[in-house]
Simulated assay, not measured.
Amino acid sequence: MEKNLFREVYKQVCGLALKDCPPSSLSGLLHGYLSVYSMVRVYPWLEDEYGSLWDIHDRIREIARVIQELLKDKDMPVDSRAGYAVDLMDAYLLYSDMKFLDVALDTAYEILIPKGSDKIVLPCRTPNICRLLCNCYYFTGEYEGGLLAEKLVTEAMGMSRKFNCDELIDWWSAICVYECVFGEIHVLEKERERLIGEQIRLGTKVEQVKNEKIGSFLLEFGNSPLLSIVFNILGKREFDRCNQYYSNRE
């Protein structure tokens, strides 16, 4: 069922003109397309369903250029600006345009390091800031940023029962980024078991919330503000499904 839904969502997304898309939808669109690109790159025969690798690549570049323009607005709320900087870094990992990375890193340090200082100061303690710290560490080896990211993740794990639905999804994304960059959280052994249990609980809850988002989307299919969110959710699930299906056939 989800596979057919993803195909329908993908068709709808491909028909969108970016100039008509609200800025808040760009991150979901970008990461949904990154999942599609990964699927087609690993399983080339999927071009028949999702289009050529180059066309997907070009769409990602188009979204990244819109995000790059948005980052010129220094009056934008800092959390939103941090999120767009991370998105541009994620696009760079595929597209390898140094302008994307340069703009993203310049923005990151404008956000994290006050003028006249050489130390990182967190403007807020949000998932986007956590993702930004992780990506800065990945690209520059910024050790202090890595320590701060770990603190934010540990704090989030302890507070996760108080998060609303959107906060759960956003923090789960940040935690996943942290794990990709750093691996497991460094805590005392007596704390490890508790954190593992909390992470399992959080992951289960996040999947429930995502299913609820998909259910809400289906009620207003065709004209839903949830389109980009659902595209991102289903894109990741479809890539995981492909990996499992084709690995079992080998």
Results as ranks from 00 to 15, higher is better:
S247R: 15
G116W: 02
Q199K: 14
G83D: 09
L70E: 13
P127L: 04
G183C: 05
V209G: 08
W171S: 07
Y84F: 15
R61D: 13
S80R: 10
A149Y: 01
L218A: 09
L5F: 02
E198P: 01
G158L: 08
Y138Q: 12
L71M: 12
G116Y: 06
F6G: 13
R65L: 10
L70Y: 11
E191Y: 11
F217A: 01
K72M: 11
L219I: 00
Y95C: 13
L195D: 06
L148R: 10
G235A: 10
Q244D: 14
K205A: 10
L147W: 01
I200W: 10
M1H: 08
Y137H: 05
G203T: 08
T154L: 05
V40F: 08
C165F: 07
T154N: 03
F163W: 12
K3F: 13
W45Q: 14
S35Q: 04
D118P: 00
E220R: 08
G145R: 02
D20C: 04
N128W: 02
F217V: 02
E238P: 08
H186Q: 13
C180F: 11
P114Q: 01
Y143W: 02
Y109N: 06
W45G: 14
E184Y: 03
Q208V: 07
V86R: 09
K3D: 15
G145W: 01
A174L: 05
L5P: 06
K72S: 13
G146A: 04
D48A: 11
G197I: 06
G28D: 13
L132R: 11
K119T: 09
H57V: 01
Q244T: 05
D106L: 04
L234E: 06
R65A: 06
G197L: 07
R161P: 03
I60N: 09
S216T: 04
L5H: 03
C176V: 10
L122C: 06
R65I: 01
L195C: 09
M157K: 06
G203L: 07
L219G: 03
E62N: 09
A156G: 14
L188C: 04
A82L: 05
E184G: 00
E47C: 12
E150S: 06
I214W: 02
S117I: 00
D166Y: 12
C134P: 04
P114L: 04
M76V: 02
S117K: 00
K151S: 07
C180E: 15
K115E: 01
L202H: 05
L101C: 04
S38C: 10
P22S: 13
A108E: 07
M39H: 12
Q199F: 12
W45H: 15
A91S: 07
I63V: 14
N232L: 09
S173H: 07
H31I: 02
D118N: 05
H186V: 12
I60C: 13
V230E: 10
A91K: 05
V177E: 06
I120T: 00
W45T: 14
Y37I: 10
G28Y: 07
G15T: 11
G116T: 07
Y137V: 00
M1V: 11
C14N: 12
P225K: 00
Y138P: 03
A91N: 06
L195E: 10
R161E: 15
L234Y: 01
W54V: 09
Y84I: 03
I120Q: 00
V9Y: 03
L46M: 11
L148F: 06
G235K: 08
V103A: 08
K205Q: 10
L132F: 12
E238Q: 12
S80I: 15
S25C: 03
